[in-house]
Design a protein around this nucleic acid. Structure first.
Length: 440
RNA sequence: GUCCCCUUCGUCUAGCCUGGUCCAGGACACUGGCCUUUCACGCCAGCGACACGGGUUCGAAUCCCGUAGGGGACGCCA
């Protein structure tokens, strides 16, 4: 997904087209669900492709015709070696300390019968070297000695990856290929294919791999983070900073990413995914997002927990009060659960420490005076607390902590005045009464 | 085995191209303090790195060579 993101950012920042192509020439492994999952993840991240998905399995005719063409033009040849023979040769080469490459057995045959089982191999150049000017890695040169005539069409007639990507890139007028650096070596095989096709190779950018995050699980983990309450903005933001930077800036909006992104600032060393940092970035976005928007995204998490939550002004108030106390939407649900249920236990230690029968009278007075408030807000609530505290000669904590215990079950919460005022008046008073009865 | 790539605080990184302003800057995490009606948030401070060895140079994180370590590729996988 990080690779997809860099592709997206590059396309956007250069007014290009972002194309999704599914490389599914291996019919064993590809499944429709994967494709759907990838698209879903991309849409959620706000990087839906401009074109595609292009499925390679639907383009076999093109590949087949192209192989035939290369055969006609002498850029490719039929090979009759069996898998067993090749495997034996590989093993022997490895044993003798040589590089396991195809020796070119069938490159110069007198006859090439079409009706015998065969694969088709591309002819690699015989001497010299190949240099790729990579946007991230710089100039990388490999001697053609290292390359062999690889198979472009299998015995069963299906084409292979290193061949079809080239055919597709050429056919689709792809100008920039941005992928993981596990493909850097493949590039040297692919460049001669472009030449055989009579095409100029595109520009390449090979990104360092991420440690510990498999690309095949990429889209699944995106959904996983979403379910864990990570915001789309935060995941994009965090992912973009893995291998790329813009000075010391840590928080980037979508537009900023598009504006600043460039391969000049992409590093060449691999990086690791750090959950802690992701959570921090997410907490920053929790604070930054419009409260109404955050409330809107929060609703499904509340409903998941069985709370009856509606996306209304009251929920927005709760968001404003609680959002800087949580790193994720799931945590926010935990932190704010007492707004949605009064089914909680009172914390024993807190009760021992703060509930003092001597203060029962003050609490009664407090409840009485709160009931008389007409304009229910944190200021009017605050006035009552201060007045009751003064009248009974009690420190604010002696009123605040029992209030917190009554309303939330424990002593950690936002400012009591705001806490009380954010509950509907009757609910706040009901809980205070219940606490007064059960605790004192 | 051969080839390719990589190596700055535990982690993400700035700096490297265009040597001196770097006894290396920022962020996460961690530790301490401040703020305070609690808990968070916030603020301040601390901890903490140029893989190693040579060379070039008045001077190297920055340039060159080597070593070590890590990753990748070498498939009728992608």
């Amino acid at each position: 997904m990080r690779t997809a993101l860099f592709n997206y950012l590059f396309a956007r920042s250069n007014d290009g087209t972002f194309i999704l192509r599914i490389e599914d020439t291996d019919r064993e492994r590809s499944r429709d669900e994967y494709t759907e999952s990838i698209i879903e993840a991309m849409e959620w991240l706000g990087m839906a492709p401009d074109e595609g998905p292009v499925l390679q399995t639907e383009r076999f005719e093109l590949y087949d015709d192209t192989v035939d063409r290369l055969l006609d033009e002498g850029h490719a040849y039929r090979c009759y070696c069996t898998e067993e023979e090749l495997e034996a040769q590989r093993e022997q080469a490895l044993e003798e300390g040589r590089k396991p490459k195809y020796p070119g057995t069938c490159r110069e045959l007198d006859e090439y019968p079409e009706d015998e089982p065969h694969t088709v191999r591309i002819k690699m150049p015989q001497d010299g070297s190949i240099t790729v000017d990579d946007l991230v890695q710089g100039e990388v040169t490999v001697d053609v000695e290292e390359l062999d005539d690889f198979i472009i069409r299998r015995t069963d007639g299906t084409p292979t990856y290193n061949f079809v990507v080239v055919v597709d890139d050429a056919d689709m007028d792809v100008t920039h290929v941005i992928r993981g650096d596990d493909h850097l070596n493949n590039t040297f095989r692919q460049v001669p294919v472009y030449h055989a096709l009579g095409e100029e190779p595109p520009r390449f950018a090979h990104l360092p791999l991420l440690e510990g995050l498999s690309k095949r699980k990429g889209s699944a983990s995106v959904q996983d983070y979403r379910d864990r309450g990570i915001l789309q903005e935060a995941l994009t933001n965090y992912l973009s900073r893995l291998g790329w930077s813009h000075g010391d800036q840590e928080i980037f909006s979508h537009d900023e990413l598009v504006e600043y992104f460039g391969f000049d600032s992409v590093g060449r060393s691999p990086s690791k995914f750090d959950e802690d940092k992701l959570r921090w970035v997410n907490s920053e976005w929790m604070k930054k997002l419009d409260p109404a928007e955050l409330a809107d995204r929060w609703v499904p998490f509340l409903q998941d927990r069985g709370f009856e939550a509606e996306d209304d002004d009251h929920l927005v108030e709760i968001v404003e009060l609680m959002r800087d106390r949580a790193d994720t939407l799931v945590e926010l649900t935990d932190e704010a659960s007492y707004f949605f249920t009064d089914d909680f236990d009172y914390d024993d230690a807190a009760v021992d420490k703060w509930i003092d029968a001597d203060n029962a009278e003050a609490i009664d007075d407090l409840i009485g005076r709160l009931e008389e408030i007409d304009d229910w807000n944190s200021d009017t609530v605050g006035e009552v607390y201060r007045a009751v505290g003064d009248d009974h000669d009690l420190g604010l904590a002696n009123l605040a902590q029992p209030t917190r215990i009554s309303l939330t079950g424990a002593t950690s919460s936002p400012s009591v005045f705001s806490l009380v005022a954010t509950f509907p008046k009757d609910e706040a008073i009901a809980r205070l009464r219940r606490g007064r009865e059960q605790l004192f």
